[in-house]
Amino acid sequence: MSLLTLDHLKTSIGQYHVLHDVSFSVPEGGVFVLLGRNGAGKTTTLRSIMGLWQPSPGSITFRGDDITGLHTSDIARRGIAYVPENMGVFGGLTVAENMVLATHTGRFDRARLKRVYELFPALERFWDKPAWSLSGGQKQMLSVARAIIEERALILIDEPTKGLAPSIVEAMGDAFVEISDSTTILLVEQNFQFAKRLGRDMAVIDDGRIVHSGTMADFAANQALQDQVLGLSV
């Protein structure tokens, strides 16, 4: 059964038509990867799902409910977390304050906090430090940690490996594998090697249109298809 379905989504930013026709379904569980080159419409797709940009026309269905046009905060409260490309970390706040904001009651579930510490030990070390003092990788960890500190059905993650050292990318991949055991992840990526390791299902977007969708295993095994839909762009 699909957790999230995008149906003929079109999104414009000002006078620019970014998404022309985006349709795909994210099944429940595992990691779904949306691949595409720079400017293909990956980030716009995630922002449209979050209600940060309003699609028109087209519809977005989450757990069977139409969430198109809902306010971003309502979409978040339905169980969708967002890790933006710029990480969205509040630099002037401490790591602890960033985490508190991601809880709806202001209190932590101890078991979940313990899990966050196990996944990202650096966050426990820098708990009372201002977030601006963290490294790029640590900020990315904080951004992901905010998304998992409470139970969510779906996490949207936008290019988490961008600009990170290979060792951090490796650790981030391990964390995503573990997180995806209990939560569905919709991952936007350009790094095909990283995406290949994590993805169960996938789609390729180009020029605001979905040009391929299927399982990652089939796609990874089909070099001709990769050349056709990805070419030199990824």
Partner: peptide, 19 residues
């Protein structure tokens, strides 16, 4: 805390579920 966060990044505060 919400005001301080909102001064920095309004979109992210909304993405965390706050109006």
């Amino acid at each position: 805390l919400l005001i301080r966060a909102g001064v920095e990044n309004r979109e992210m505060v909304e993405s965390l579920g706050f109006r």
